[in-house]
């Protein structure tokens, strides 16, 4: 039985020789995920709320931004930021910032659809009763609507967060040394392919699972606060709708 659990010597030596680089790649991937996710969340909330105001102009602006960033592909947006904006605006080349902005804008636009969907899903009576109580807009959103919508939007945001973690691999296309490009570089330098690719494959999986579990905990807490039993929501349909 013992040999079943022995790791081939090649794998160990590959890890020993390259773990620092892999760790560096993981650091970039995690940074992009965390900051990209945070930016995406802020954008999603702003655009989502803008879509629900009574100002037609605001709603229209939000709509145009959302459709634009949903419709034009993350990689194209990234290349636009990296290759076009430095020339147009004269700011230098900051691949990490560009990747982070591209992720934030793209997934923020997707996320705004989830936020909007959740706000719409709060029962009409709840909106009506805030009007009946003559609450100012900010109060009614903050005190009444948001806490209910929050629980509804978390499953969708969760799916999007996992996609954003996977999306950080666009770093590969602009020479950022994230997990994917590090393992690809190591492979090109002759490291055992299955091992270096396999390690980053597993790391991505664990990272995605960790983010997902974290957001799920927040979701359960939000449901509890509303006096609901923690339930698993089927988000596939809503997520597909937001992405398209």
């Amino acid at each position: 039985m013992a040999e079943l659990f022995t790791v081939p010597a090649g794998v160990i030596s590959t890890v020993q020789a390259n773990w620092q680089q892999l760790l560096g790649g993981l650091k970039i991937t995690v940074e992009l995920s965390v900051f990209g996710g945070a930016l995406a969340f802020v954008i999603a909330v702003v655009l989502g709320l803008a879509a629900m105001t009574r100002f037609a102009v605001l709603r229209m602006i939000s709509r145009i931004i959302v459709e634009f960033f949903r419709g034009t592909s993350l990689v194209v947006q990234l290349f636009f930021l990296v290759f076009v904006t430095p020339v147009v605006f004269g700011w230098g080349s900051h691949p990490l910032v560009f990747a982070f902005v591209a992720l934030g804008l793209n997934y923020g636009a997707y996320g705004s659809e989830v936020v909007r969907g959740a706000l719409t899903a709060v029962p009409k009576e709840q909106w009506e009763c805030t009007t009946a109580l003559s609450m100012p807009w900010v109060t009614k959103i903050r005190r009444i609507i948001w806490p209910q919508a929050w629980a509804l939007m978390l499953p969708g945001l969760n799916s999007l967060m996992v996609m954003l973690v996977k999306g950080t691999a666009i770093a590969l296309f602009i020479g950022l040394l994230d997990l994917t490009s590090v393992s690809d570089n190591l492979q090109k330098q002759g490291a055992e392919r299955f091992t270096v690719y396999g390690i980053s494959f597993v790391l991505y999986y664990l990272l995605a699972m960790a983010f997902s579990a974290f957001l799920r905990r927040i979701e359960v807490r939000a449901q509890r606060r509303l006096g609901l039993k923690p339930t698993k929501t089927d988000t596939n349909r809503a997520t597909a709708g937001a992405l398209a």
């Binding site: 996992v162 973690v165 950080t168 691999a169 690809d184 492979q187 392919r193 690719y197 494959f201």
Partner: peptide, 18 residues
Amino acid sequence: SLLRNTPIPLQLLIAAYA
């Protein structure tokens, strides 16, 4: 779930080169 939770670019590299 392994396939779903890992990035496509990495999967492409693995499929093609490994």
